[in-house]
Design a protein around this nucleic acid. Structure first.
Length: 309
DNA sequence: AACACGGGGCA
DNA sequence: TGCCCAGTGTT
């Protein structure tokens, strides 16, 4: 769930456990199937690293997880948070489990005025004082539950909080001010054009390289997403199939972590023969049948919604 | 230490 | 519109 809300992640979690019930099953999974199952969740490097981690656990530990934080931390997809969380929740070991929730609680109890993210080391040190040898798993769980339900980012319910006595932010009547965050720089905007090369059976996609944005995912062909506005004539010069008429059928907006995208949607209708011929000459592309749109990241799923029914 | 990396829900 | 989410890996 790293950086993802529980309600968003939960159905994916259920699907994953049904399809790959054990770490051995996941280690043997097909990479493309795992990436497709992750589509829509975002932060796709997590899926690649989860697979790497599963394969390492099976090869190094014969499929049984190590139970100490130091060893867990060496597994791909395990960072400081996850290593501590697994040590505590799976093995009931004392561990300093610090996620965004616990950072918020600490910043309020101690009224930490240093701004995020610079304050993170200080908040982690403060959280260390709350690690308990007794009921090691219950303490971080209780703090996280308290943070999500009571010590919420907006409108904290200090009147219901068992820790309000001694909470410096509460005594200052400024709970909502913490954690202190500086205003973020405005998100830059980029512009692009995406191409729907469509036959009666499906449409053309490509497997994106493992590194970078949407790495390892299937994607639609598109112009590079750049900071300057496209010109339609330029787009027409860069069609993958030059001798088939292209029609501009829509435009949409999509927001990534570090930029916003305005994208035009271009449609080219192909016969089955034209598509087969194109695929024969362009190995990096493949056809995805209608009905499999869920294998695509959201930014491309949005483009397909412009297809006339 | 700073940056790259998705997407959805909510005020 | 901006914030935040059971953060990690790379530069």
């Amino acid at each position: 769930m790293q950086q993802t809300t529980v309600p968003h992640a939960q159905p994916y979690f259920e699907t994953f456990l049904k399809r790959w019930p054990t770490v051995q099953d996941l280690a043997q999974a097909d990479d493309g199937e795992v990436m497709a199952a992750w589509a829509g969740l975002g932060y796709y490097s997590r899926a690649r690293n989860l697979l790497k981690g599963a394969r390492m656990v099976v090869s190094q530990y014969q499929g049984g997880f190590p139970d100490d934080e130091i060893s867990l931390l060496k597994i791909p997809s395990f960072g400081p948070y996850t290593a501590a969380a697994v040590a505590a929740f799976a093995f009931d070991k004392p561990a300093n489990v610090v996620d965004g929730n616990i950072e918020r609680i600490m910043s309020r109890i101690y009224a930490v005025d240093e701004s995020m993210p610079a304050a993170k080391p200080k908040l982690k040190a403060l959280a260390a004082q709350w690690v308990s040898e007794d009921r090691a798993a219950d303490w971080p769980q209780a703090l996280m539950d308290l943070a999500s339900g009571v010590c919420r980012p907006k409108s904290p319910k200090c009147g219901e909080c068992p820790l309000s006595e001694g909470c410096l932010a509460y005594e200052l009547d400024q709970a909502e001010r913490y954690p202190v965050r500086l205003a973020k720089a405005a998100k830059p905007r980029r512009y692009g054009a995406v191409f729907l090369l469509v036959s009666n059976e499906g449409f053309i996609v490509e497997r994106r390289p493992d590194k970078g944005l949407l790495g390892g995912m299937l994607g639609l062909p598109h112009l590079e997403w750049r900071g300057d506005v496209w010109v339609d004539n330029d787009v027409l010069d860069q069609l993958l199939i030059a001798d088939v008429a292209a029609e501009l059928i829509g435009q949409y907006e999509h927001v990534f972590t570090h930029f916003a995208l305005t994208q035009n949607v271009w449609l080219q209708r192909l016969t089955e023969d034209e598509m087969s011929e194109f695929l024969r000459q362009n190995n990096r592309f493949q056809r995805l049948g209608f009905g499999n749109e869920k294998a695509l990241p959201t930014v491309f799923g949005k483009a397909l919604k412009f297809l006339p029914m």
